[in-house]
Nucleic acid binder design. Structure first.
Lengths: 162, 162
DNA sequence: CATTATTGTTGTAGATTATAACAATAATGC
DNA sequence: GCATTATTGTTATAATCTACAACAATAATG
């Protein structure tokens, strides 16, 4: 089928293929795209730092909310984190199996569970957070600096209120 | 079990339950958490704007990359977007079925596909992008302003290089 | 006290992401 | 030239995440 005639002969030195960088085109100006890439990088770094603790971002967030609001009802914890209450069940199940959190009877409502950290959960969270500051947040401040980090946080908050 | 003695009697007016806001605790200072919330809000807004076009962020990104790099090989497109090449197949299949993109023979490599937008894909992408600017990016600039948007973009890029 | 709402839960389906394997083809070493 | 190795697109599969419907127990309401 004469795919390759006599020879390409290179019109103007014809770069073989690697062709340098890929143009992002319309993507370049889209905030959502740049936000997603940054978020993936940060979560990746978070998970690397938490590898030894076997703690994913969602699990950490649940422990943190419970620590700051002991006795909060299960539905309100999931709601605060934007996690579907049906999906929250298995998430909490695992934290309970690992003896980091516990479901207790809620005073005055026999439908609800009041959530607490176990003593083990308290120390585990403290330790994980300490390690997170030393590894993860440290790397972030290395590229952002403290001032720009706080600036970024306030810019992000304005977006969350979209 | 005497769960409720005679009566709670309210120690200090004892707010019934709603208890105002939930304390974010350790989460409050974590960049990853704030980043994720912002990213979800922005993607949500993106999808709302693209509802009539039936275009998700990943699909838009593929079209945008192909438009900016016509003839780029399939593997390089997926690589540029950080999409596993196995998962990229079905993604591209759908765009091809919708006659927005097409696989063509790559010159000089019978293994590879060179990707192009169809004429329909070109106009569809242009139209979708126009609508995106008018709806989505407009709302973003309403809360950020142009200067802060560009500032945010540069801060995000520094994080991506983590 | 009958009706309606909420809570935790299970089951299920759709998306997303990662991995392994495979055939076709290309690139490389000798 | 030819055997070996690498790449490309693809399928299949599993893990994870998310959303939704349904249900029993319980609470709130009229």
């Amino acid at each position: 089928m004469a795919v390759k005639k006599t020879k390409p002969a290179a019109s103007t030195e014809a770069a073989p293929e690697p062709a340098g960088r890929v143009d992002l085109g319309l993507l370049d100006g889209l905030l959502g795209y740049r936000l997603r890439r940054a978020q993936l990088a940060v979560f990746q770094d978070f998970m690397t730092a938490m590898k030894d603790y076997d703690l994913r971002p969602a699990q950490f967030s649940v422990l943190a909310i419970i620590e700051a609001n002991p006795g909060l009802k299960q539905s309100r914890v999931s709601e605060a984190l934007g996690i579907n209450r049906a999906n929250f069940v298995a998430l909490l199940d695992e934290l309970e199996q690992r003896k980091l959190a516990r479901r207790a009877a809620a005073a005055g409502d026999r439908r609800s569970n009041a959530l607490y950290l176990t003593p083990k959960g308290e120390s585990f969270l403290k330790e994980a957070y300490r390690h997170l500051l030393q590894q993860h947040e440290r790397r972030i401040e290395a590229v952002l600096g403290s001032a720009d980090k706080h600036l970024l946080l306030s810019l992000l908050d304005r977006l969350t209120a979209l």
